[in-house]
Design a binder for these strands. Structure first.
Lengths: 333, 333
DNA sequence: CCGACTAATGTAAAGCTTTACATAATATTT
DNA sequence: AAATATTATGTAAAGCTTTACATTAGTCGG
């Protein structure tokens, strides 16, 4: 039912109805009641598509996440939502699946549909499109990775510190043959994690073996594959640093299938913590990011930007090393 | 940049540009190239909000899921997406968090933004709104739960069979004090699971103890709470059937904290399987739903509906009982 | 009781695309 | 070569709301 039909029925102008719905104070209480009552009665009037044509604000925040199956992003979305809702915003999620093409589709969609704000876990490309989104008036925040868009807020974990903690932990246990299952190198966070892995080894005077650095795509299957490759080497590593949760799942599947003992044969430390890591056998040593805090911070920042505050800032959250039983001294020590 | 600006620049009519973008065959190859080139050059023209005003198709499928942190829904979305993308559709996700109010916001949003199709994991209310969405021309499919909307396709697991399998498994192990951590009773699937639990016990001649049926809200915390309540009883159960994954996580946290031994003190079987259930200690006996298949079926059905096929159907997928080590004979047997 | 102000409502423009229909140009048929 | 069909483009309407501005009615101070 359109405004004009409703208007005819109630004998008021379209404008009055629109006002009664959008700026209730601008219309006399009596008419307002009459209109609102009718709106409810008639199977609820729903503002149609033309709304966004004129409306300045859309009260919608788009979120592009990179992997909906990764609990890290799920928790992130969840923590954003409650605060957004309390402030009258709806959160719309698109899953890019670490795929730049899908990200492009998601961004176009958000641009089309004119979101007020965009929180983006970038795959790395699509800068031009992001620029267009910004041009359309949306506030943009990079989360977890940097998109490369100039002059943007970015909220991430402190990847340098997190990775350093993990590697140092392995070194201090006596490991020297330390591998990594790295993420795709077009992602800023994956790059940092790999660089710091290399730097930490170098600093400790450990020779860097190129085959010890396998690159996956942040999804489970690739974690499985990379682990397999590591154990095909003539001198397999005694410890491995996995760059994210999903790839760690893949690693777990592999070691369980093949009977590799953790930590007796292989020590494992991974970026990202999950509920179940504490409970599996053995419990996994992990670098935990404070997801909830990060989510809350991000949405608060977004709300500020939507209120008009300016200036780009870069915020990093300190991750924590949670030592569990998947890491121990290497065999023969 | 709007079409009219572009039109002036290229010396063609707005209509021609619109056609070049939307129905490339309707425009001469030479002009088409010229237009497309310009469109690219100029920081890429992005169709604006007015597009949806006239366009018949939006090529967008909205999905309202009930809990983004539940891997079941995450996997569902994932399996939908690939096929949707191959068919030129974008998937937009809203998280209702088992909260009818949030669901309402999500549905209004999708109505506003005019999605072509809606896949809904209903919280139970909002039928009027769903009707409005349908009226707007969208195809609607209920997934996992029934919304109550008349004449709708619904895709679910066979909850009757799944629950019966679980309870029979416990009974056949010799359990008689069987509890359940049920879901919120306004959800159709939670209702079915509870009913079948009761019916199965009755059929086996087991007395139904009302305190053995605790209702949670399908989220982790409530699983924790319900377990706590069960163990406060003077005669705690020897087995429990948990109605979904997240509540099972809560249960696990509780039994680990308190040192309750599974399955020695308590046998556990849960609806929904997850990657990690196989690997935790002890591995959890679970009712696995064929999520991927369900997702693929749902999106295929949606695509058919969008192509114009009519008639509502109800499809159920058979779940499987995966017996692991969390279930055993009760103590003293 | 008049003028000035306020409050409530109406009028109409703006917003930007898609597409039915009209027109012009070109190709094809007889 | 004329008549007809086809192709390419243009014109303009339709789509439905929001909101600036105009209008009307009502209030209040002097």
């Amino acid at each position: 039912m359109t405004l004009s039909e409703l208007a005819r029925e109630l004998n008021v102008s379209i404008a009055t109805i629109s006002r009664a719905l959008n700026r209730p104070d601008d219309v006399a209480p009596s008419t307002r009641e009459r209109i609102l009552a009718a709106v409810h009665r008639n199977g609820k009037y729903q503002p149609g598509k033309a709304r966004w044509l004129r409306a300045q604000q859309t009260r919608t925040i788009g979120v592009v996440i990179s992997d909906i199956r990764n609990p890290f992003f799920a928790a992130f979305v969840k923590s954003i939502e409650d605060i957004a809702k309390d402030n009258g915003y709806t959160v719309l999620v698109c899953n890019a699946d670490e795929d730049s093409e899908k990200e492009e589709a998601a961004l176009s969609m958000f641009l089309d549909r004119k979101v007020a704000g965009l929180i983006n876990c970038s795959t790395g490309g699509n800068v031009a499109l992001l620029r267009a989104v910004r041009q359309s008036g949306a506030a943009i925040i990079d989360f977890d990775r940097e998109s490369g868009l100039e002059n943007t807020d970015v909220v991430t974990a402190d990847n340098v510190r997190g990775t350093a903690l993990a590697i140092q932990h392995l070194i201090s246990l006596g490991h020297r043959r330390i591998a990594t299952i790295a993420g795709p190198q077009h992602l800023s966070n994956a790059r940092t994690r790999l660089e710091v892995y290399q730097r930490s080894l170098a600093r400790a005077g450990i020779e860097i073996v190129s085959q010890y650095a396998q690159s996956g795509n942040f999804q489970a299957e690739s974690g499985y594959e990379c682990t397999r490759k590591l154990f095909k080497l003539s001198k397999p590593p005694t410890a491995v640093f996995v760059a994210n949760l999903e790839m760690c799942s893949g690693l777990i599947t592999f070691v369980r299938e093949t009977g590799i003992r953790v930590p007796a044969d292989l020590s494992v430390v991974t970026f990202d913590d999950a509920f179940w890591m504490r409970y599996i056998d053995p419990p996994i040593t992990a670098i935990a990011q404070p997801v909830e805090k990060m989510g809350q911070y991000t949405i608060q920042l977004m709300l500020e930007r939507l209120r008009g505050s300016r200036g780009a800032q870069r915020k990093m959250f300190a991750p924590k090393l949670i030592i569990r039983q998947s890491t121990a001294a290497p065999p023969g020590k």
